[in-house]
């Protein structure tokens, strides 16, 4: 079976003024489909950069990144965008919902971008997802009318509504209290177990790491 994600000797350099900062020093990592993986490490360790590489939001300076065997480092911006839309779901630390859309509309957003589903199919999928994250009662509310935990649930629903192969979550509990954070991780676990969707999330919270199948530790741009 092909790994869901495969990083081979990934090096990432960022220009910082006149000097170049190396964020990743040749990281190699395979993640199997259905894994619930935590990438852990202190701030600036390079875990966000790894997520960027996996999430097709950035390309490596050298080395290769493959999703389901598809090499991404040579793809155009438009191709990467399409790959993100169809194969990857995103959950952000700051939830990053679209404030002018209500819960249902936020969840529907990637489906509309895909433009391949009928209105009816979209409605069914959105309803199912909103129900699964427990927000059926709040479906017509705007993000700013919801609590942090509820917002992250909307984000989870939005990430999963397209049936992506991989869900990336960047410190999904960082802006939540520990109880709510735990609920969110539990919800992600539930989704992972039911749908066998690959989850990769970054965190530096040891209690969150405990929930992971696998914890990949990063320090100073290399895997520990």
């Amino acid at each position: 079976m092909k790994p869901a994600v495969s990083l081979q000797k990934v090096v990432k350099d960022y220009p910082l003024g006149k000097v170049t900062v190396r964020a990743l020093h040749g990281v190699s990592l395979d993640i199997q489909p259905g894994e619930f993986t935590a990438i852990a490490g202190p701030s600036g360790s390079g875990k966000t950069t790894i997520l960027n590489m996996i999430g097709c939001m950035d390309v490596p300076s050298s080395g290769s990144v493959a999703l389901d065997g598809t090499e991404t480092s040579q793809l155009s911006d438009a191709q990467l965008t399409r790959l993100r839309l169809d194969r990857i779901g995103f959950i952000f630390q700051s939830f990053n919902l679209i404030n002018v859309l209500d819960v249902r509309q936020n969840v529907e957003f990637p489906l509309l971008l895909q433009g391949k589903h009928s209105a009816r199919e979209r409605a069914e999928r959105v309803s199912r997802m909103v129900e699964r994250v427990g927000l059926a009662k709040h479906a017509k509310q705007r993000p700013n009318e919801l609590s942090g935990g509820q917002r992250q649930r909307v984000a989870i629903a939005r990430a999963l509504v397209t049936n992506p192969a991989i869900v990336l979550a960047d410190e999904p509990t960082a802006n939540l209290d520990s109880h709510t954070g735990h609920e969110i991780i539990e919800l992600m676990r539930e989704m992972n177990e039911k749908d066998h969707t690959t989850f990769i999330f970054s965190t530096h919270d040891p209690r969150v790491m405990e929930c992971a199948h696998r914890v990949v530790k990063v320090a100073d741009g290399v895997l520990a």
């Binding site: 700051s94 679209i98 404030n99």
Partner: peptide, 16 residues
């Protein structure tokens, strides 16, 4: 930028 970046991350094209 956050809003726009989010849309781009989720899969919105530049033209969108």
């Amino acid at each position: 930028t956050a809003e726009i970046g989010t849309m781009r991350a989720v899969g919105a094209r530049k033209s969108f």
